[in-house]
Amino acid sequence: MPALAQNDSLRRVWVGLDILPFAKSIYGSKDNTVEIFGSYNIGKKRYAAAEGGFSSAKYQGSNFSYTSGGWFARAGIDFNVIRQEKFPGNDQILIGFRYGFSSMHYQAENIQIPAGYWPAFLTEIRSVSFGSHWLETRAGIRAEVFPHLFIGWSVAGRLLLYSGHPVSMDPFVVTGFGNGTRKTNVGFSYFICFNF
């Protein structure tokens, strides 16, 4: 079948789910995430992409306990750089860019300042809400395993632009961005999606 005809068999909309967080939760990950995404073919091998989800995290430190939760959204564009004449089929190699935003809250309880010369002291940081912004580049593939059913993976390099958390405590995880103690992160997703 000619490559162009196969490509025309695809519809414009993709909707998918990142399944890597479910696998990570089996191995006792400290954060839990649910992430869905959609993309829309805007022509000339370009796709408008939107992603969103929720996450929560718990961490038991040496002298404190930490909890957080929030939601995130990303929007951007993907380019399908596969050469259809060389690689016939509906599979795609996607390179893209995203702007990400998250709104989350965190708190720390049972903060124990240990006794030294003075007695020990127990305190807390009450729930604080803040937003974060970041940019990311994305590369990955999307392969058709059954008609209109795709699985794929992508790797993302993320750069934190701003996070409004108090300087006294970096978040354990910035929802949708990753490790909250870093300005840059690498993200990996393994997903399943439908074309309809």
């Binding site: 961490y59 040496s62 002298n63 404190f64 930490y66 300042i113 002291f121 006294s168 405590m169 103690t181």
Partner: peptide, 15 residues
């Protein structure tokens, strides 16, 4: 006083 998280490995100290 302000409790300050040194790192997730080190925990909190008071600044």
């Amino acid at each position: 006083r302000q409790p300050h998280l040194l790192s997730y490995e080190c925990g909190f100290v008071m600044y």
